[in-house]
Design a protein around this nucleic acid. Sequence first.
DNA 1: ACGGGGTGCGCAAACGCTTGCGCAATGCTA
DNA 2: TAGCATTGCGCAAGCGTTTGCGCACCCCGT
Lengths: 329, 329
Amino acid sequence: MKVSIKDIAKKAGVAPSTVSRALKNHPRISADMQATIQALAAEMGYVPSESARHLAGKQSRTIGVAIPDFTDPFYMNILSGIEEVAIAHQHELFVGSFNQDLDRDRKLFDAFDQKRLAGFVVAGSLVDAAYLTRESGDIPAVLINHYEYPFSVAIDQMRGVEMGVNHLISLGHRKIAYVALGTTTSSDSLRYQGYINGLESSGYQTNPSWVVEGDGGLAGGLSAVKRLMALPDPPTAIMCYNDRTAIGVITGLHQIGIAVPDDVSVVGFDDLEIAAYFLPSLTTIQQPHVHLGRQAAEKLFALMHGATVQAELLEPKLIRRNSTGPLHG
Amino acid sequence: MKVSIKDIAKKAGVAPSTVSRALKNHPRISADMQATIQALAAEMGYVPSESARHLAGKQSRTIGVAIPDFTDPFYMNILSGIEEVAIAHQHELFVGSFNQDLDRDRKLFDAFDQKRLAGFVVAGSLVDAAYLTRESGDIPAVLINHYEYPFSVAIDQMRGVEMGVNHLISLGHRKIAYVALGTTTSSDSLRYQGYINGLESSGYQTNPSWVVEGDGGLAGGLSAVKRLMALPDPPTAIMCYNDRTAIGVITGLHQIGIAVPDDVSVVGFDDLEIAAYFLPSLTTIQQPHVHLGRQAAEKLFALMHGATVQAELLEPKLIRRNSTGPLHG
DNA sequence: ACGGGGTGCGCAAACGCTTGCGCAATGCTA
DNA sequence: TAGCATTGCGCAAGCGTTTGCGCACCCCGT
């Protein structure tokens, strides 16, 4: 049986409203009374009920975050960034994952407005972004790496992959493969487009059989690269959807006795922390992940405070490391 | 302005209580009425308020999770496991991170009972486990990898490290170093103890200068190993607090031209997914992470349903891979 | 024809808190 | 010393739901 504000009021011989005000240092309550009540509250082990507070007070202090997968470090970094500014603004986070399961996705967004959230940010391109804007029209939201939405912060993914491909071309590579994500998301198609653009802008053709699908994870990269290298005319360089895929790819190459970067060059996307530590260290396209999260959150708070914000497109950056090298022989 | 149950009631010409019941398919409401009201609710875009529901209904459907760090894949795997069973039980998750900042930690646990959570699980050894049991005495909780607490699920970390050390000894190594976590947690001291035990049970002495501190991450492992190998009498094998540390260690060794496992053997702890993909692949102690999360959650639900549960100690397992090899010359 | 047991629904209290007012007592200005 | 602003606190109306009762009404059995 939790102690309530009324219990304190009774014991202190005052009205509940006085307790409520004393607890928040309301100026119209005497300092003595505030001290008395706060001491009493502490002694009785009073813990305010968030629900009641929210119901009566009208304003929520928690913002929602939707990410595709708890085990993907990229999104976790974003989450950290968001958490950081949320804390700075004295807000809490409600985090949910939306995976492939469309039904669960709806549940998550339902939960968002059942909680009457102050706002939310969703990271990762939505399969069906339409219902996002529709369902929760009233509560402010910002999207990460989504391009049609007015309030978003994103990096130029297409340009990023293009930079990777150009780098490969400048090293002399012509047979450049691409390991895609495999699910139809805007990130996947944008990066794929970047691959195509990179090739075509230099006047080279892509070979459709050099485009294979991974799953965005280590396992997907590993199996994809084995299919790739079994081709009659295998590539000499591989652009990957992301770093995790790239690591899977390199491990796969290692397993079949192909050296990186001597035989084949590999470039990733994201610049996860591990990219600098992997052996060989990964040439990759940097996304400022934590920064992305921070930016998104800042933008959300601005929105919540009624400010007008606009979509933001960040520049990617090529990080040269040791998984890419000049074409031999 | 959200539509409420009263709005629907008014429009339907019935009492709010009828709407409430119709929405939950109460048997005492006619099928016709249920259909009418549900249709009306959908049409008006009714979304129930969680706060109001919680306030009136008394029971929460969300369980809390506290983890040390969003960016540590180990905990994220645990989180996935928890999420899985929470969903199966139709519950939601409220996840918070508690880092080194003691003040924030308190805030997190305060939030837990302000939300009147149905229960919660905390992963990672608490710096100050005392206040946990004290503060939130009323709401059921289970701890992961904590040993004094009656309701917990843990693996035998001490035994795990001991297995790693034994493996190294069986390969001929005698100069075995340990890279610790660096913060005073039970996990750290238990694993350290396992290291000592492993050495002493085989009759070997430990050299205090071979015990250095990392930070549980890649960077910490990297800098630790450099201090280690700069010693006048450097070790030939290194047991690490966890996989991330081990990866940092291997990368560090690589940077100073020391080969793994030819010159130095390295073993990790956790068996993260990356352990199997790293080059060289990591010999490590397996913790069934996702399983740990699942178990913890199951146990929590049992507790919530009034069942009596007891602490559980899982066996670790040595996974032999390519970062360890026989001692040369 | 009469009592008993469902049905189908409304009333109102309660959950724990916030907040606009109201009202007394005090301090101040002129 | 009258008049006014200020200070300090209580009253009560919500916030959006849930739920225990109560009360008609209808269908049966006898």
